[in-house]
C-alpha cells in the first residue's frame, strides 16, 4: 500500500503526523517513509536522526530523481535514531526504513524521466514494504504532480494507493484543503488529466484534522462567553467542512492539541505518555489513524 501525505498549507503537522503514523504501522509491518519534500526535508529531525536532520549530503531521493543513481540511501530508524526509548522497545516490530531527502535539495522540473523513475521506485518499494508513506511538500508541488502521473501508469494500477490531506481546524485551512483536493489544479483535476478515474481518486482521499481543541474538556480559565463562542464557532466549522466535502465520512481521524508537538516535532512514544510529558489521547489518535489507514472498510467507495 502506498500512502501519500499532502496538505495545502505548511505548518499543518503533515510531516509529524505521518511520521507518527509510520511509527505505529511499523510496530507490526515493514514500513518505508519517503521524504518527497525536496525543498525542505525535515523528517530526519522528527525521527531524531542527527546525521539526517536537514536531509543527507549525497545519494538521497533528490539525486535519485535528478542524477540517475539506482539506489537512494535509506536508514533504519530503529538503529539510527537518538531516541533510546525507541530502540528495542518492541522486539517484534517490523522494519521502519527512512529514505531521506538532501541538504540543499530543491524542487526540480517534472519530466517523463522523473515520472518513470518515480513509478519504478514506488513499485519496487511496494514489493518490499507493506506500507510506503510518501511525504509530499505543501501545496501543488512538483512532487504532487509527479506522483499523480506515476501512479496513473499501467504498472502501478494494481497497487493500493491512499491519499491523506492534512489540515488544521480553522476556516482558512478547511477552505484551503478543499481547494487542494477539489479546486482548480487540485489533486482530482491533475489526477484526471494524468489518466486517473476522478471518482476512484476522490474515494481514495481522506482528510486528517490536526490539533482539534477538545471543547468538552473542563477548562477553568475560560469565561462563559469564551466557551459559548468556541462552541458556536466549532459548529460553524463543522457545517463548513460538510459543505466543502470534508465531512465526517471523508475524515480518517483527528489529532488533539498536543503541547509537546507545539514545541518540538517528534515521535510520541508510550514512554512520553508514561512520563506524563505527552497526552495519552495523542498517542491514541496516532494509533487510531494508523489502524484506520489499513482498514479496508474505512476506504470503501461512497
Amino acid at each position: 500500500m502506498l500512502v501519500f501525505a499532502s496538505s495545502d498549507k505548511g505548518g499543518t503537522g503533515r510531516s509529524v503526523t505521518s511520521c507518527n503514523i509510520a511509527f505505529h504501522l511499523a510496530q507490526r509491518d515493514d514500513v518505508a517513509y519517503l521524504d518527497f519534500d525536496f525543498g525542505s526535508p525535515t523528517a530526519g529531525a522528527i525521527f531524531d536522526i542527527p546525521r539526517a536532520e536537514r536531509g543527507i549530503e549525497r545519494d538521497g531521493l533528490h539525486t535519485y530523481f535528478t542524477d540517475g543513481i539506482t539506489d537512494p540511501r535509506h536508514l533504519d530508524v530503529w538503529h539510527a535514531t537518538d531516541r533510546a526509548d525507541l530502540r528495542g522497545a518492541n522486539v517484534r516490530a517490523g522494519r521502519l526504513s527512512f529514505y531521506p531527502g538532501e541538504m540543499g535539495g530543491a524542487e526540480f522540473a517534472i519530466s517523463d524521466t522523473a515520472t518513470t523513475r518515480c513509478a519504478e521506485l514506488l513499485t519496487r518499494l511496494d514489493q518490499e514494504y507493506s506500507v510506503c508513506v510518501v511525504d509530499l511538500s505543501a501545496g501543488r508541488s512538483t512532487a504532487l504532480e509527479m506522483v499523480l502521473a506515476a501512479t496513473a501508469q499501467p504498472m502501478m494500477r494494481a497497487i493500493t494507493t491512499r491519499w491523506l490531506v492534512f489540515h488544521r481546524w480553522t476556516r482558512q485551512h478547511i477552505v484551503a484543503a478543499h481547494g487542494l483536493v477539489y479546486g482548480e489544479r487540485g489533486i482530482v483535476e491533475i489526477g484526471a488529466s494524468a489518466g486517473h478515474d476522478p471518482e476512484a481518486l476522490r474515494d481514495a482521499i481522506r482528510f486528517v484534522r490536526i490539533a482539534v481543541p477538545n471543547l468538552k474538556e473542563h477548562n477553568p480559565g475560560q469565561t462563559a462567553a469564551q466557551a459559548t463562542w468556541l462552541f458556536t464557532y466549532d459548529e460553524e466549522l463543522r457545517k463548513l467542512a460538510v459543505d466543502k466535502r470534508l465531512g465526517k465520512s471523508r475524515v480518517l481521524g483527528m489529532t488533539p492539541v498536543e503541547p509537546v508537538l507545539q514545541y518540538r516535532e517528534q515521535l510520541i512514544s508510550d514512554s512520553d505518555v508514561s512520563t506524563k510529558i505527552a497526552n495519552h489521547a495523542t498517542v491514541e489518535a496516532f494509533r487510531e489513524l494508523a489502524a484506520r489507514l489499513s482498514d479496508d472498510a474505512v476506504w470503501e467507495g461512497m
Binding site: D30, E120, T123, R124, Q127, A158
Partner: peptide
C-alpha cells in the same frame, strides 16, 4: 532488473512481500 520488472508481460501484483 527494473527493466525486466516493468515489462508488460507481468501483472504487477505482489504475491508475497520479499526483500531483494
Amino acid at each position: 532488473l527494473t527493466q525486466v520488472q516493468g515489462r508488460p508481460q507481468l501483472d504487477h501484483r505482489t504475491g508475497l512481500r520479499t526483500r531483494p
